[in-house]
Computed example of a mutant assay.
Amino acid sequence: MDITFTKDNKRFKYRASALIIENNHILLQNIKDYWAPPGGKVQMLEDSRIALKREIFEELSTDIAIEQSAIFIEQTYHSQEKSFHELGVYYFCHSKSLWDRGTSIIGCENGEDMEYRWFPIIEIEKINLQPAVLKDKLLGEHKIFEHIINHE
């Protein structure tokens, strides 16, 4: 059971996401009109690392190596239909097997094809990355754990 619930037009979710970096490129997932790190919802009684490995395997049929915790983001944001409150745990990860699959990868999420693409980290400012606060983390020199509270 995913740790998520909806009441009226408000939704809470707990996610784990992978900052998969190989050869100064990051793998991102296309979600409508923006890009985001791959990952998914944490399930009840599941820790975030196990959830992340499970989600990546489900979506991309491969294992990842989790290097270290990167960032914990508490955020609220709004779409036309709903308001969201999300807790997101992000990990620096590696996957040589994903890098070897090429610049663009088709994965599967909830039975539908999903596009994943490698982007040069130095060009990350040019894309619509969500959450946007990740850009500073990716362009920074220090890989220290951070806790960010962000309201959009």
Rank of each mutant, 00 (worst) to 15 (best):
I144P: 00
F72K: 07
T103V: 08
P38D: 13
Y91H: 08
R49M: 07
N128K: 15
F119R: 04
D113N: 12
V89Q: 11
K10Y: 11
D136P: 01
A51Y: 02
I124Y: 10
I64K: 10
R54V: 01
Q80L: 10
I124C: 13
E59R: 13
D47I: 06
F57M: 09
D2W: 06
A51E: 00
I31R: 09
F57I: 01
S48G: 05
N150P: 02
A16N: 05
K135L: 04
S61C: 05
T4N: 14
Y77L: 07
A65G: 07
E109L: 14
S104M: 06
C108Y: 06
E46P: 13
F119D: 04
V89W: 04
S17W: 01
D2V: 11
S104Y: 07
P131L: 03
R15I: 13
E112W: 01
Y116G: 05
I144S: 11
V42Q: 05
P38K: 08
I3D: 06
I64D: 05
L134Q: 05
D47Y: 12
R54I: 01
V89S: 07
E152P: 02
N150V: 08
S61H: 09
Q68H: 06
S69D: 11
S83C: 03
S17N: 09
K126A: 10
G102P: 04
M1Q: 14
M44N: 03
L139S: 03
Y34Q: 11
H142N: 11
K135G: 05
W118K: 08
I124N: 12
N24C: 05
M114D: 03
G40W: 06
K53N: 00
E58R: 15
R117Y: 01
T76Q: 06
I106K: 15
E141C: 11
A132E: 15
T62P: 09
I121F: 02
Y14H: 12
E86W: 08
L45H: 13
I21T: 14
K143F: 09
I144Q: 12
Q80P: 06
F84W: 14
F119Y: 11
D33P: 00
L19F: 13
I122R: 05
H142S: 13
K82W: 04
D33A: 05
E112C: 09
C108F: 04
L139T: 11
S69P: 15
N24L: 10
L60V: 07
N128A: 15
L129P: 13
L138I: 08
A51G: 08
I21S: 07
I121R: 02
Q80F: 08
H142F: 10
S97L: 00
I106R: 08
A36F: 02
P37L: 02
G140C: 02
S48C: 12
R117M: 06
L139R: 06
L134M: 14
A18L: 01
I73M: 10
Y91T: 02
Y91G: 00
F5P: 03
S69W: 02
